[in-house]
Amino acid sequence: MLPNMIDRILAKQIVPVVVLDDAEKAEPLAEALLAADLDIIEITFRTDAAEESIRRIAKRFPELLLGAGTLLDNDQVKRARDAGAVFGLAPGLNPKTIATAREVGLAFSPGVMTPSEVEQALSLDCKLLKFFPAEAAGGVKMLKSLAGPYAHTGVKFTPTGGITAGNLQDYLKLPVVAAIGGSWMVNPALIKDNNWSEITRLTREALDLAAQP
C-alpha cells in the first residue's frame, strides 16, 4: 500500500466493513460515516450491489479512502478498481490476485493467519496484512506471538473477524496492529432500516475508543 494510504488508516485505526445489498444505500451510508469524521470504508464484494455501491461512493465522495473487500479472483480485482476502489482486501493470500492488483494499480492487503502466510506475504512485498478471522485464529495472543519474529520487518496487521467495541482497544494496544476492521457500527440491520444516526453514533464511539491511550 502507498505510504499516505497507510498513514490515513493509522490515523483513524478503524475500517468499517460493509455489506450492502442495495446500492441506493451507498451514499447515505458514506454520509453517516463522514458525519462521524471517519473517511475510510470497505465495501465487501459479497453482494451483487457491491460494484455499483463502490462506483456511487467514488463519484460522490472522492475524499473517502474507498476499499473493496473479499476480492477472491482477478475479475473482482479489476471490477473493483474500475468502479473506483483505491485499495483492496482479501480474507486469504492468493499470489495471482496480488499480481493482478499491482497490474491495475490497486493497493492490496491479503489475509493471513499463520507464520507461513505472513512470510509468503512478505516475500510478495505485502506489509499491511489482514489478520482473519481474528478472534477465531487466536486474537490478541496470536498477534503477540506473530509480532515476536515479524515485527522488525515492518509488517502491520488489520485484524478483522469478531472485533467489537468491547475488544478493539486490546488489539489497538499492539504495536503491530495498524487498525481494526469491524462491522458492528455498520450492521446490515441498521442499513436496512436507514438508521444513519445510529451508524454515526456507533462510529463516533468506536473512534473515541480507538483514540484513548
Rank of each mutant, 00 (worst) to 15 (best):
E51W: 04
F61I: 01
F45Y: 08
A50I: 06
P213A: 14
F131L: 03
V140P: 09
I163T: 07
T100E: 15
G88V: 00
T203P: 09
I199A: 06
R102L: 07
V17P: 02
P91L: 06
L89V: 13
I40F: 01
A49N: 12
A90M: 07
K96P: 05
K173T: 15
E117T: 13
L64I: 13
A99I: 11
P16R: 02
I199S: 03
F108T: 08
A35K: 08
V176H: 05
E198S: 06
Q169L: 05
A26F: 03
A179G: 08
I41G: 01
E52Y: 03
R79I: 09
P28N: 13
I9H: 04
P115W: 08
I163F: 02
E52N: 12
T114V: 11
P110C: 09
E119H: 14
A80N: 12
Q13N: 07
E103R: 12
L2S: 14
L29Q: 01
E205P: 01
E103T: 14
R46H: 10
A50V: 07
L190F: 13
N195Y: 04
A85D: 06
M142A: 12
P213F: 04
L202T: 12
R81M: 05
F61C: 06
D21I: 00
G139L: 07
G67E: 13
N94Y: 14
I54D: 06
T158H: 05
P159A: 14
E24M: 09
N167D: 13
A36R: 04
C126Q: 15
A99F: 07
M185P: 00
A58M: 04
I180Y: 08
G162I: 00
I54S: 03
D7A: 15
A151W: 10
R79T: 04
I41V: 15
F132N: 01
A36D: 01
E42P: 02
F61H: 15
K59C: 08
T114P: 05
R81P: 01
R46E: 07
E119Q: 15
K12N: 15
A137Y: 04
I191Q: 01
V104E: 06
T114R: 14
Q212G: 13
I191V: 13
D75K: 15
E27L: 15
I40K: 02
E198V: 10
A83Y: 00
E119L: 13
Q169S: 10
A99Y: 08
K141W: 08
E31F: 00
T44C: 11
A30V: 00
P95V: 11
T160R: 02
D82Q: 14
L29V: 01
I9N: 06
E205R: 11
G111T: 11
D193K: 11
L38N: 09
K25D: 03
T164Y: 09
I98D: 04
T203F: 04
Q76C: 02
L66H: 07
E52T: 12
G148Y: 08
L72V: 10
N195F: 02
T100S: 01
I98M: 10
M113L: 12
A50F: 03
